[in-house]
């Protein structure tokens, strides 16, 4: 029972970060039908900025706004430089474009920084725990969960209550009709990338706090988690993406504790296999959205 609760908190902490990443992936998929394999690069870029800023003696408190701004800016720049040029292209082209962006960004760091891992200091409290009875809770997990919930509430309000949110939802449902109603395609797509960058920025703060390091290929892991979580949720559904993130986090933590020691190191592999199985039996994801093909 105790370990169950412990795993639950761990899983939710982990899942929170995935949920933020997945939501960012889903927002962009909604407006552009682009599965963004370059989403993790927002964390890579943020990581290098954090590495330099922390190296210059700045505190982690400054990192919070700095990373968010970096992530939003990077997201917008990538949209401007690459994705804006392939709007409306075939899925094949979109997939490979985002794959290409991933490589260009990581190659730039390879070229101008180095291939080696850059370490930076983590805030002191990241490893701290507190106890409730015999339950050891990481402060970090609690902070992540609380911040994520606040962010998700904020995002929900943004999407439900503001004209921008309304435009984004309308554009995700039917882009052409939204334009007919006067929704500006440029604004809504850039807005989506900014929102996606903001969510990735929050995720980046925690990801980097926990990792304490960055390297050119640092984006692969968060990208994969975000993309898979979004897919678990059904891609088109924002709510599904968030649920997918939590599901993925919980699955990882519980599998790691349940699998026999000899193959515990293969947890991630097992998770991928499970996800592949999910697609095989429910290709539309957990949250199905009906799409009818017009003939």
């Amino acid at each position: 029972m105790l370990s169950l609760l412990q795993n639950l908190i761990d899983g939710l902490g982990r899942g929170s970060i995935y949920a933020l990443l997945a939501l960012g992936v889903a927002v962009i998929f909604g407006v552009m039908h682009l599965l963004n394999f370059a989403h993790g690069e927002l964390i890579t870029v943020s990581g290098y900025v954090a590495f330099w800023a922390l190296g210059a003696g700045w505190s982690w408190w400054v990192m919070v706004p700095l990373i968010i701004v970096t992530s939003v800016a990077t997201s917008l720049v990538i949209e401007r430089v690459a994705f804006s040029r392939v709007r409306g292209a075939s899925d094949f082209t979109l997939l490979l474009t985002s794959f290409g962006v991933h490589f260009v960004v990581s190659a730039i760091f390879l070229l101008y920084v180095s291939a080696s891992v850059k370490n930076f200091s983590r805030p002191g409290w990241v490893a701290d725990t507190f106890s409730i009875g015999s339950l050891n809770v990481e402060i970090f997990d609690m902070v992540v969960i609380v911040v994520t919930i606040v962010t998700l509430i904020g995002t929900t309000l943004l999407l439900q209550r503001t004209m921008f949110g309304l435009a984004l939802r309308a554009a995700a449902a039917d882009f052409d009709t939204a334009r007919l109603m006067g929704v500006k395609s440029d604004s809504v797509i850039r807005g989506a990338f900014a929102l996606s960058g903001f969510l990735a920025g929050i995720a980046a703060i925690f990801w980097l706090m926990r990792a304490g390091s960055v390297q050119p290929s640092a984006g692969i892991d968060p990208m994969l988690k975000g993309v898979l979580a979004a897919l678990i949720g059904g891609l088109a559904s924002l709510r599904g993406a968030v649920l997918g993130g939590f599901a993925l986090g919980l699955a990882e933590v519980f599998l790691r504790s349940w699998l026999p020691d000899s193959i515990a190191s293969l947890t991630e592999g097992v998770v991928f296999v499970l996800i592949a199985l999910l697609f095989i039996f429910r290709p539309q994801g957990l949250i199905a959205t009906a799409t009818a093909e017009r003939v």
Binding site: M163, L166, A167, R169, A170, A178, M181, G182, V183
Partner: peptide, 9 residues
């Protein structure tokens, strides 16, 4: 919400 979108301008 549909109507609001219509009046976005």
């Amino acid at each position: 919400e549909n109507l609001k979108i219509g009046g976005i301008t």
